[in-house]
């Protein structure tokens, strides 16, 4: 054995196992965020089981005050607000997840392709993205919706495309950084194919930064859909997501009712939860682990 292998602390200790996410223990705010996300997902999935009433049923007078049977009161048509919130979670969260997922698939595939192939493919894709991002996303969404109308497929396509451009930029940058590292170079020199290099060498190392981005994109999508619905340009009746509920109940605020605050708060809580987790994930990336010499 050699000198170096004999020295006791040359051998780094093995990691101990405990609850970890991306190899780190979540802090307090991250735990709060994780719990909020889990609760929201549970509510969305189990909506029919949890909701006290079906979402479209008229169960009393319009704008009835909260009571023991209707915790948050009734809405403009006499429907139970709590039940509508619970069902609204399905549409809001489901649609946002779908769009974010779609945007990620498009963005990552294009971003990684641009980064690994380079040349004109990269140039063309990057210029298209620059063009799409030359104006605020909300304004761009307005332009498309004004022509194509506000069908759900149009909504999904538009927002997914806009999101994909942002994912593309990050995915491309991350892939470029990783591709310049020597273990990727080593794989190329070994003669590995492009597919192996992307899927085995780059992708596993790109997941942590992209996971935080997924959270951010989800919030962005979720808020954008809600904002469009609130402006009357998103989800159209009879469907209702949280954003359109805020719009439907908005006039009640002047009568000192909290009705529009419930759906708005539901939106706020979920985005806060996701942002808590994202903030923690970003802080582990940026945290320097250099020890003073």
């Amino acid at each position: 054995m050699t000198v170096e292998a004999l020295t006791p602390d040359a051998i780094a200790p093995r990691r101990r196992r405990s609850i970890r996410l991306f190899g780190h223990k979540p802090n307090l705010t991250a735990w709060i965020g994780l719990i909020i996300i889990a609760l929201n997902i549970a509510v969305a999935v189990l909506a029919p089981l949890i909701a006290p009433y079906p979402q479209a049923d008229i169960v009393g007078d319009a704008w009835a005050d909260p009571d023991r049977l209707h915790w948050l009161g009734l809405d403009n048509l006499g429907r139970d607000i709590l039940s509508r919130l619970i069902y609204g979670a399905r549409l809001s969260i489901g649609l946002s997840s779908l769009i974010t997922g779609l945007a990620f698939v498009i963005g990552i595939v294009c971003g990684f392709t641009a980064a690994t192939l380079g040349g004109w493919v990269d140039a063309v894709l990057s210029r298209i993205v620059d063009l799409l991002l030359s104006m605020p996303v909300l304004i761009f969404a307005f332009m498309i919706l004004s022509v194509l109308g506000t069908d759900i497929p149009v909504l999904i396509g538009t927002i997914a495309l806009l999101n994909a451009t942002l994912v593309f930029r990050l995915a491309r940058a991350v892939a470029m950084t990783i591709a310049s590292l020597e273990y990727v170079e080593a794989a190329k020199v070994r003669g590995e194919g492009t597919w192996w290099v992307i899927s085995r060498e780059i992708l596993p190392n790109a997941i942590p930064p992209l996971a935080a981005e997924f959270g951010l994109r989800f919030c962005f999508t979720f808020l954008l859909i809600a904002a469009l619905s609130f402006l009357g340009l998103g989800i159209q009746p009879p469907l209702a997501d949280w954003g359109s509920m805020v719009k439907d109940y908005r006039d009640m605020i002047n009568l000192d009712s909290a009705a529009p605050l419930y759906p708005a708060a539901a939106i706020a809580i979920l985005t806060i939860g996701v942002n808590f987790v994202v903030d923690w994930m970003l802080s582990i990336h940026s945290r320097g682990h250099g020890e003073p010499a």
Binding site: L181, E182, Y183, E185, A186, K188, V189, R190, G191, R200, E201, P204, N205
Partner: peptide
């Protein structure tokens, strides 16, 4: 170019890098 070399040619010339931290895939 790399692409124009045979697998065997690639195999017979190997390389070791300066900074071991980035020469090995951490995953």
């Amino acid at each position: 170019r790399l692409a124009g070399r045979s697998k065997d040619q690639l195999r017979r010339v190997q390389m070791i890098y300066q900074i071991p931290d980035v020469a090995l895939n951490p995953r």
